[in-house]
Design a binder for these strands. Structure first.
Lengths: 218, 218
DNA sequence: TAGATTGTTAATCGATTAACAATC
DNA sequence: TAGATTGTTAATCGATTAACAATC
């Protein structure tokens, strides 16, 4: 009866941990382990068991007392939430070192994300090979996005080019952007942007190292 | 007098935003802008001005009423906290597509992190060129770390190899690890690990897209 | 002066953890 | 049965935001 049968909002920190759970279950893949407990997941990922149970309670999935969670079933519902079963297609914008590496990185494919194009504006790069793909002109983006039903754009361009590239992706019909560029982008309604910046991560690391050296007791 | 003149603990969310502020100031670099207000920083980065002021209050730095923060000074204290002036040296472990791309990525150098080696265990990769560097055997790691005072290891290896590689880095004397591998690592005391996983980020994006499509009002 | 902006306190909001009844 | 584990509530903890006095 309740309206809350519809999928509820899941807090972002929870979503991030769900992705971690998925990663752990994937590492169990070939093993024959059939059940996993909240305690075991927590240990493996450096969390508390209460957090794991709370997180899993957001899913349409139940564990079983004394056993824990059935590995295959949990993998299925996690995959549903994380959209890895949706067969999402993605394109990469930016065919520099990072963009090319991502195009060749088969982890995306392993996790259900199909990279179906790589684009750039540089005439020096357009036409060059990246694995089995050929770098295409940004002008070809709308056509490819339309033809393949591309939903995700991976932005691997210099900061100065980020805004224009993002607008191009959005105009082409992409609904989500993974932003590796060092520029802040505000998504229009209906578009989601997630930042993933290596420079910020290494700076975070460096700051934590600094603080740790100053107050080693922590 | 107070003991709290010593550097206080800065919450991780704050540190992450400090890195964003730094990125924004960097984008102002060539410009002649001398002052920046909390309001302006907030706008540029999608935050509130209260958050910006609260964050900056963790720093040993003061703004000026009616003017805001002096750009050069703020950049200096941010750089201190983020360790970008420390001239930190880093090595990359894993000379696959991602590792090689990171070695060639000059954003790290631009931000004050000096990549001074790339390592792998594969005899097929050892000895190959990556820019001006040559891929070295992991066995050479302790020597290089010692000689150059390397503090950071960037882990870009497959999940199965992550633990061994991390132990190698730590044994060699590295104090911080940027972990791009899909494996959870628990740092020993005195070592800091920050995770930066593209697969988790794209799954987070995908989940947010899914939720957005289900509840577009959010 | 009036207006803009900081620095900081207090209030709100949200996330994590502890605890425990229910269950097998 | 006893013991292990879930699911969930309530308590705690921490982060963000609002508000405003102080200042130039």
């Amino acid at each position: 009866m309740s309206l809350d049968n519809r999928p509820h909002r899941i807090p972002t920190p929870v979503i991030r941990r769900l992705a971690k759970y998925m990663g752990h279950l994937r590492s169990l893949r070939d093993e024959t382990q059939e059940w996993v407990s909240s305690r075991e997941l927590a240990r493996a990922l450096g969390l508390t068991d209460a957090t794991v149970r709370q997180d899993i309670s957001y899913l349409d999935f139940s564990g079983r007392e004394k056993f824990g969670y059935e590995v295959g079933g949990l993998r299925r519902v996690l995959g549903d939430v994380l959209g890895v079963h949706a067969g999402r297609r993605a394109v990469i914008v930016g065919a520099g070192n990072l963009g090319r590496a991502l195009a060749l990185h088969d982890d995306f494919a392993t996790c259900g994300f199909d990279i179906c194009g790589i684009f750039d504006v540089s005439s020096q790069l357009i036409g060059t090979n990246v694995g089995t793909m050929v770098v295409q002109d940004m002008a070809a983006l709308p056509r490819i996005v339309g033809r393949h039903g591309v939903e995700i754009g991976i932005l691997a361009v210099p900061a100065v080019a980020a805004r224009t590239a993002a607008l191009g992706l959005i105009a082409a019909g992409v609904k989500g952007i993974l932003n590796l560029a060092s520029a802040h982008l505000s998504p229009p309604p209906g578009v989601v942007i997630v930042d993933a910046r290596l420079v910020e991560s290494i700076q975070e690391l460096s700051a934590l190292m600094q603080l740790q050296q100053q107050r080693p007791q922590d």
